[in-house]
Simulated assay, not measured.
Amino acid sequence: MTESIIIGGGSGMGLALARTLVAEGMDVAIVGRSADRLAKAKEELEGAGHGRIDTIAADLGREEDIAELFDKVGRVEHVVVTAADATGVYGRTTDVPTATARTVVDTKLLGAWLIGKYAAGRVTGSITYTSGINAYRPNGSNTIMAAANGALASLAYGLAIELAPVRVNVVSPGWVDTPIWDQLGMDKQAAFTELAARLPARRIGTPDDIAQAFLSVMRNGFITGTVLHVDGGHRIT
């Protein structure tokens, strides 16, 4: 039995989690749309520990891909979903193309629902989704992403009841140094310096910070139907 599937495990927070699990000797399947990115991630992970690493190319927004994914892996203990695509999503609602908004909802929300649909009866431990601070502190330039992220909490509440005793939770990161920032065309380090000064933690998060949060909800058998905020205090500023 595969111990963990990480959808979005080819980079960023998902890769950090995979690295931690493999270092502990766990068997992990990393899933993503890019076979090349998965191959590079596997090469890195093979030097990080003793766990087995499998790679599976799949698109979270395609139902047939998700169905095939769970047919391939069979029973699995934990499923973690970190996949996200912010391409073209930032801007005022009047300026964001409707097709882009549909893509966000298809991958971030409907894709998460498909995971619950096809993981049912196969996952034995937990499902953990990834939300984001914009669901709780929208800034006027990412409204559709904020809406999709916010809906994940309601999805997790429903699935936690429906799939019980399988536990279903959401980890909601704040500002984290991941490759998604490279899509935004800004001076990342200057932005991070300014953003860090606004947080009680006085720093931007790292993928390893979020990996530790995933581990906490994966391993605590009494946490379900919960949103774990890992945001450096962003929500209280």
Rank of each mutant, 00 (worst) to 15 (best):
T226E: 10
A112K: 01
V81T: 09
L228H: 09
M26Y: 15
T143A: 14
R198E: 12
G225Y: 08
T100F: 06
D59P: 13
A23V: 09
V89H: 02
I223L: 12
Y90G: 07
R122S: 08
R102A: 14
I6V: 13
G47H: 07
D182Q: 00
I144P: 02
R19F: 01
G12V: 01
H234C: 08
A67D: 13
G12F: 04
T87G: 10
T224K: 03
A151Q: 04
L215I: 11
T206R: 10
A146D: 04
P138K: 03
A151V: 06
F214S: 01
K188H: 01
T143L: 12
N169S: 11
Q189W: 09
G221S: 12
N139D: 15
A112M: 09
W175T: 08
T103D: 15
A112I: 09
M218F: 06
A84K: 07
E162V: 09
R198I: 10
L114W: 08
S154H: 11
S11K: 00
G9H: 02
V227D: 10
Y157I: 12
L152R: 01
V31R: 04
G12N: 04
R219N: 13
N134C: 14
E77W: 08
I6F: 07
I210K: 02
H78N: 12
E63P: 09
I5L: 13
I144G: 01
P97R: 07
G51D: 05
I223T: 02
D85C: 08
V123Q: 01
A135Y: 01
D187F: 08
G121P: 05
T93D: 13
V31L: 06
G232I: 00
V96D: 05
A196L: 11
A39F: 11
V96T: 10
I161Q: 13
G9T: 08
T93P: 08
A57I: 11
T124C: 11
A147V: 05
S11Y: 06
